[in-house]
């Protein structure tokens, strides 16, 4: 089982879209995939039609339940519109985690819980909130691969610097290195902001950045309205093809890491 976390403390950069699209493609290919929603805003859960206000159980239970077991975790998981693609939804009350935390080792709760699901999934993809706090840290500490979507617009450089500083600090606390990849998103080749920012990002982080980018594609929004993963909604759209190519390059990277 591999755990991929999608995180950036900046909002609206395409975290949820990246999670749902990559998860969908992996599931289409026959992998058993779990999407874990760690964002109290619950966009990912809403995507599949779950109402974060009415859910009895959610990812909040990962933090509150004293005694987690594999069967208990499975009772938190719901299905989605795609076969092979499951969801551990979030609820608004998840926000209380940020307030209640001050305890040692609390940032490792999700990581610990996921070890119980190892036999059941090939991939777990975690969507995280745009806030540097306990939820995002839990998501980062749990992952084998960190994806950082970066919106190609004017303020991207500052936000990316901040995020990379956070990653360095998390690495220091964890005592390990995180394998992270910057993913340029919402790229619009007609705008100077997109073109210029992408160039700057590539200059600043030549080996960390995925060499291609995810273009603006209105079909992401259409797929979201339909409650379907983008690849099932329209497998040949530009956006989906871009994410497929991202997957290919991640697979390559992972192999290289195994060989190292």
């Amino acid at each position: 089982m591999q755990v991929w976390t999608v995180a950036n403390q900046k909002g609206g950069v395409g975290k949820t879209t990246t999670t749902v699209t990559l998860g969908g493609i992996l599931a289409d290919r026959g992998n058993r995939v779990l999407l874990l929603d760690l964002d109290p805003q619950s966009s990912l859960s809403c995507y599949f039609g779950y109402d974060p206000d009415s859910l009895q159980r959610s990812s909040l239970n990962l933090f509150t339940e004293e005694r987690l077991s594999s069967r208990y975790l499975q009772s938190l998981i719901v299905s989605t519109s795609s076969p092979n693609l499951d969801l551990l939804p979030s609820s608004m009350s998840l926000a209380t985690v940020e307030r209640s935390v001050n305890s040692n080792g609390m940032g490792l709760k999700v990581s610990r819980a996921l070890t119980l699901l190892r036999p059941h999934y090939d991939f777990v993809l975690i969507d995280s909130p745009p806030v540097l706090g306990a939820l995002m840290i839990n998501a980062m500490a749990a992952c084998d691969q960190l994806l950082v979507p970066v919106q190609t617009e004017y303020l991207a450089m500052k936000g990316t610097e901040r995020m990379i500083r956070t990653i360095a600090m998390v690495e220091k606390s964890l005592g390990t290195t995180l394998h992270y990849t910057l993913v340029p998103t919402l790229y619009d080749r007609r705008t100077q902001a997109s073109v210029g920012t992408l160039r700057q990002l590539r200059q600043a982080y030549p080996t960390r950045i995925w060499p291609s980018m995810i273009p603006i594609d209105t079909r992401f929004r259409d797929a979201s309205k339909a409650g379907q993963t983008p690849s099932r909604y329209n497998a040949s759209s530009r956006g989906v093809r871009a994410y497929q190519s991202l997957l290919k390059s991640l697979a390559l990277q992972n192999d290289q890491r195994l060989m190292a």
Partner: peptide
């Protein structure tokens, strides 16, 4: 992967944050 992390400036506000992260992620108290 190569380690081309840019020079990081982990100064005062950073120290507070680092303490917070250490607390969340310290394994010795697991």
């Amino acid at each position: 992967m190569s380690n081309e992390k840019p020079e990081l400036d982990i100064e005062k506000p950073g120290a507070v944050l680092q303490g917070y992260l250490d607390d969340l992620l310290t394994v010795s108290t697991s």
